[in-house]
């Protein structure tokens, strides 16, 4: 049975490290802005190609 205690300690260490990562991200500003990244990810990729297409159309 005592092995459970060992497992618990390991699980606490793991989940504790997640908490630390969360804090680090909070400090880095991950939770400061929810709107822009959602928009940005749609823009970045096709940015170059579309610009070129448009540019060509307009001569």
């Amino acid at each position: 049975m005592e092995v459970i205690l060992f497992l618990i300690i390991i699980s606490i260490l793991i989940s504790g490290s997640f908490l630390i990562v969360f804090f680090y991200m909070l400090k880095r500003g991950q939770f400061r802005d929810f709107k822009t990244p959602a928009v940005r990810i749609l823009l970045e990729d096709d940015n170059e190609t579309k610009t070129n297409n448009k540019g060509n159309q307009n001569g």
Binding site: L43, N47, K50, T51, N52, K54, G55, N58
Partner: peptide, 12 residues
């Protein structure tokens, strides 16, 4: 924007 090839602005 047009002169700087930034027409993409209008397609978003």
């Amino acid at each position: 924007l047009h002169d700087n090839q930034m027409d993409f602005y209008y397609s978003i």
